[in-house]
């Protein structure tokens, strides 16, 4: 055993330098040169102030913005340092009550919407940082946003269409709308009257 420990120690040190220093530093160098924006978190800057990341969701509660999915990350949701899901099982009464409360709240805020809601709009994502909602969930909020901004629903709907990303390569994943990018575009194209 002892005669194994010395080569083991040396092997550990060599592999640590190779795979723990040289490899990650080489990757960092190349990524910072080739994909600088993405390597740093796809951050979005407006007037020298970082307003978010295109990949990380954030809270929206005002009626004139599209709202994201409920989030279990941190105490207030969308905490970028505390990713997490609800981890509630399908038969847990807490989950059933929470979803029912979300559904009721949605119907109160969007009285024109009838029928069952798209599942993603009232369930929590696995990461708690999901930047997307489904196109159906965006369309469900059109009337509310249009009224809050005094626009016609059609103007909003065409903006949703422009922001709908299809399945990757035509078959992977699901169609989706990035909530932050959609809302920023909404502010840019139709500034709210104050």
């Amino acid at each position: 055993m002892w005669q194994q420990l010395l080569p083991g120690l040396r092997m550990m040190l060599v592999l640590t330098v190779l795979t723990g220093l040289i490899y990650p530093l080489a990757v960092t160098g190349l990524c910072q040169v080739l994909f600088r924006d993405k390597a740093n978190g796809s951050l979005i800057t407006v007037n020298d102030q970082v307003v978010g990341s295109a990949l990380i969701g954030q809270n929206f509660s005002k009626a004139r913005y599209f709202q994201p999915r409920p989030s279990a990350a941190g105490n207030d949701g969308y905490d970028g340092t505390a990713s997490g899901g609800s981890n509630l099982g399908p038969t847990n009464q807490k989950l059933i009550d929470r979803v029912k409360a979300s559904v009721d709240k949605f119907h109160k805020e969007n009285p024109s919407y009838t029928g069952p809601l798209p599942a993603d709009l009232v369930t929590m994502s696995g990461s708690g940082l999901d930047p997307h909602i489904s196109p159906a969930s965006a369309v469900a909020q059109v009337d509310r946003v249009a009224r809050a901004r005094r626009l016609s629903p059609d103007q909003i709907r065409s903006l949703i269409d422009a922001h709908t990303e299809g399945r990757d390569l035509g078959f992977l994943g699901e169609p989706r709308v990035n909530v932050l990018l959609l809302n920023m575009d909404l502010d840019r194209q139709f500034p709210a009257r104050r």
Binding site: G85, L88, P118, M124, S134
Partner: peptide, 15 residues
């Protein structure tokens, strides 16, 4: 039990 449409999305990402 959730009475929504589109499968079990609790804990899953939209994308």
């Amino acid at each position: 039990a959730l009475k929504v449409r589109g499968g079990n999305m609790e804990g899953k990402e939209t994308r």
